[in-house]
């Protein structure tokens, strides 16, 4: 059996708030194979966002281990985690988090800047990703000149520009209307079919239904982990 892309064992995260220790994640163990499309569900406070942040190397676990592509990342330093994020991960956020007054092209090229990719290579790569998601004619537009759906697609292009092994999407449709949401899901499904592993956090069943596996969290623990017959978003449009 091949090595899973992600393996977490007993992953635990406590937040210290004053004198209280609030457990956010209480020992999560699971594998995610390369090429999966996983939806992580749960009510707020269930620990799904904490789980996501740990998968994204944005935070250190309080206990437990996390292997990404066979490498134990829970033991890495801040700079080493930055390097993992830069080379192997892509992020899509609910509020897009694009740099204001910065062109779509520069936004997409940003991860390459921190990856020390020379400018001569950076911009062609960013441009290729933008055309791939159908925004070739918008490369000079600033975020304020784009619709919500277009902004999220720029953000997806940015997540893809470094050819990541895993794309983490945190409520990517949370700020979009339902039709645009389905468009974005269709785009993610298409990318998944091209071989990119996707982990999506959502609290909407309709959105989770587009994924091939649904993991439900409650009170910091996995309460359900099941395969799902993914609905085709492109067909739903």
């Amino acid at each position: 059996m091949s090595e899973p892309l992600i393996r977490v064992e007993g992953l635990t995260k406590d937040y210290v708030m004053g004198s209280n220790v609030v457990p956010a994640l209480r020992g999560v163990t699971l594998d995610i194979a390369a090429g999966e499309f996983v939806a992580v569900m749960g009510p707020s406070g269930s620990g799904k966002s904490t789980f996501m942040n740990l998968l994204g190397c944005l935070d250190h676990p309080s206990a437990g281990s996390y292997w990404f592509g066979g490498q134990e990342v829970s033991a890495l330093s801040g700079d080493e985690l930055a390097a993992v994020r830069n080379r192997k991960l892509g992020f899509v956020f609910q509020h897009f988090n694009l740099l204001a007054r910065t062109s779509a092209l520069d936004n997409v090229a940003l991860p390459l800047l921190y990856g020390n990719v020379p400018a001569s290579e950076r911009y062609p790569r960013a441009e290729r990703r933008l055309s791939q998601i159908g925004l070739a004619d918008r490369i000079d537009h600033h975020p304020a000149q784009l619709s919500g759906g277009q902004q999220q697609r720029v953000a997806i292009a940015r997540a893809l520009v470094n050819d990541p092994q895993l794309v983490l999407a945190d409520e990517p449709t949370g700020a979009l209307d339902s039709r645009t949401s389905v468009e974005i899901m269709a785009l993610l499904q298409q990318l998944n079919r091209e071989g990119i592993t996707i982990v999506l956090v959502t609290h909407e069943h309709d959105i989770a239904n587009f994924a091939g596996r649904i993991i439900s969290f409650r009170d910091g623990k996995v309460v359900e982990d099941r395969a799902n017959e993914a609905k085709d978003a492109a067909a739903a449009l």
Binding site: G56, L58, G78, D79, A82, A83, R85, N86, R87, F91, F93, N97, L99, L110, P111, Y114, G115, R158, N162
Partner: peptide, 15 residues
Amino acid sequence: REIGLRMAVGARARD
């Protein structure tokens, strides 16, 4: 938030 985003896409503390 901009700093957070830059860090998320790979900026190190010294960047």
